[in-house]
Design a protein around this nucleic acid. Structure first.
Lengths: 382, 382
DNA sequence: GCCCCGTGAGACAACGTTGTCTAGCCGGTC
DNA sequence: GACCGGCTAGACAACGTTGTCTCACGGGGC
């Protein structure tokens, strides 16, 4: 009747079975060297009392862990993140781990709070999508304590000292431009001959933590080239704020395809920012018919959706390719062509990276760049 | 250099600050009655050593908890569940709780395993979507231990004894049929005058745990009536397996609108089962042009998507209403009309239900039925 | 000057579990 | 018949933290 009496402990089970506490512990932990008679007495006592093993208590012993991983993303309701979370969960689950998922909403302070909370909870590892405007130094604090993996975006370089305001676009001309389809695995320093990976002055590009990225620039470049190939000349880059790493990369790939200096403000590239599908639709609606654009590269899902919505409402359309695949892409005619990321593989790779570190592997942190795939469905045509 | 030396404890902090361990504990827990001099020495020691409070260890004291809730759903990658999970997470987060989310994949055994694991982890409460073919009795085991809330579906009645194979369609004629638009809150027994809610022999419909449902039957009935209003006479019910509670309810509402005996096999109601959008598209494609159907009620997202896909490919269409809103519904012309559930509110309600129990409230378990909304966008028209 | 009381700090045990170590038992061997 | 080795069971301490209790100190009242 009493709603929730305090749950029985091993001690209670031991008393009921008439054995020592430690013997119950052995039984619960699956030790084989137990007298069958005692084992069955213990089993009976456990079911009769309704005993439940307390993993939380067990996990405070050093060397034992709760087998829980933390995942910090920006919004679980966004299909991109939820598919990623599902993939992480599946891989971890197969390895006996549970997942705690939290949403940072791109807020650096909230992000910091959540990371601290997860660490206090003593998760075994963290998979994190670093927030934009990330100034809290959470990674430097967390990485020495437990395995940390950055996903979707790299960590912001720590303390971009205010002196090097514009490190000059010319000196580092155009990065060697990863092949259109990047290799599955890129090693850390890339320059294999550098003997000491950490270079004091220069911002060494060896990552602080394992990092899993998509080939944003390469995908965007391929999409843009495809639009160009079909005769587009004034392509609109429609995306979210360039504060987001993925947007900067996709924009860079876009400009590279156009043959523009990555840092210049050449007006051949028109760029529009929209945070929601509605905003994106507004932008496109305003430009349709003005002749100022003749194709659209939608740099994320919401931009794609907004553009299609604008097209549908206007009863006309322009060539379009979007970044990230989405369910509705096949429902309209022509089908929406997209740069598809393998989100599931990203999650799986991230989970494996954490698991490897937990298994004791300690190679220097690696950045993995996952290939993207250009899926053509017709919307790229004039 | 050493990758991960064992993290400092309160004892280390106390030693470094030259105070007693308990004083550090007081400081960490925000006690006010601490000598400012000692407090600052402790604060310094904490930052210097990089001490982190260990909530896992703290939570083994009786009366203290880790503030974690478990959520068991069928698939986090499904937008329906991810939006629900997000809503639960948001509400819990506002109340200082973290969320552990796991996917059961509708497998009863896996579901049982996950629930047991979460209980072993000593979560404070559980929000669970019961799996289909639920025979493991997990709820009866879990409910006495911690607050449990069922979401999206009620618990299966325990042990449907094999004797009452077909409890006869006639004896229980047509259930009083909840009003077309259910009230926001339905109390447990419904029959307010029953003094003793538990009735030995009969399966009392007082729920075992708090339950949050959508008005599946009502929504489906409204949608079907709308199709009928526009002249449809041979409507296809296109949904997933009727093993799923939600499907049974939606089918019941569908039949009610058609004026069919809920248990009869009247062939005026054509029913097709499809697990994926592709299967749904196949079914619709096969029926299009045969004249055997003149409208479609798609009982879930995937069915809607599949039907639209079939229409688009065939270059024709039939009147269509779907259950559950989805992003693509507004992208095609005509827009897809749907029965929309307020998924976010469902998550919030479930979270509040757990929080209320954790706050010590112990009213008898309640079933809450959330209203659905018929959103007409044009696809219902001939 | 003495006592009482309020305040803040520390000693100790406890939470539920597991690692280590010792004691005991049994069978086999010389 | 004595000894040894292999095996299981139990006593004990420890994990990192917090609740309880006690103690020391200092100030104020008589």
């Amino acid at each position: 009747m009493n709603p929730m009496p305090k749950p029985p402990t091993m001690k209670d089970v031991a008393a009921a079975a008439g054995v020592a506490l430690k013997t119950v512990s052995r039984h619960v932990n699956g030790a084989t060297n137990i007298d069958p008679a005692l084992a069955s007495r213990i089993a009976t006592a456990i079911t009769e009392l309704g005993y439940r093993h307390n993993l939380a208590a067990a996990s405070i012993r050093p060397g034992r862990s709760a087998k829980v991983i933390g995942l910090v993303i920006s919004d679980l309701a966004n299909p991109y993140w939820s598919v990623l979370a599902r993939s992480v969960e599946r891989t971890l689950s197969e390895n006996g781990y549970l997942l705690m998922t939290v949403s940072s909403e791109e807020d650096a302070d909230r992000h910091r709070l959540l990371v601290d909370r997860l660490i206090a909870q003593r998760v075994d590892g963290l998979i994190v999508s670093p927030p934009r405007r990330d100034t809290t130094g959470w990674a430097a604090d967390a990485a020495p304590l437990l395995p940390v993996v950055a996903i979707d975006r790299p960590l912001a370089p720590l303390l971009p000292s205010p002196t090097d305001a514009h490190p000059a676009a010319a000196p580092t001309p155009t990065p060697p431009a990863a092949e259109a389809s990047a290799p599955l695995l890129t090693s850390p320093g890339a320059d294999a001959d550098a003997p000491h990976p950490t270079q004091p002055g220069a911002a060494a590009d060896a990552p602080l933590v394992d990092t899993i990225l998509a080939d944003n620039a390469g995908g965007a470049e391929a999409a843009t080239r495809e639009l160009l190939r079909h005769g587009a000349r004034r392509i609109l880059f429609l995306g979210d704020s360039l504060e987001l790493y993925t947007m900067r990369e996709r924009n860079a790939g876009f400009r590279r395809a156009l043959g523009l200096d990555p840092a210049s403000d050449d007006d051949r590239a028109s760029v529009a920012t929209a945070h929601t599908a509605a905003e994106a639709a507004e932008v496109v609606t305003a430009l349709l018919g003005t002749g100022r654009i003749d194709a659209v590269f939608a740099a994320n899902n919401r931009a794609s959706t907004g553009a299609v919505d604008a097209f549908t409402r206007a009863g006309t359309r322009l060539p379009l390719i979007g970044f990230d695949d989405f369910e509705a892409a096949t429902l309209v005619r022509p089908g929406i062509s997209v740069v598809a990321q393998d989100v599931a593989q990203m999650g799986e790779t991230a989970a494996h990276a954490v698991l490897a570190r937990l298994a004791g592997e300690t190679p220097p942190p690696t950045t993995t760049t996952l290939r993207t795939r250009l899926v053509l469905r017709g919307s790229e045509l004039p």
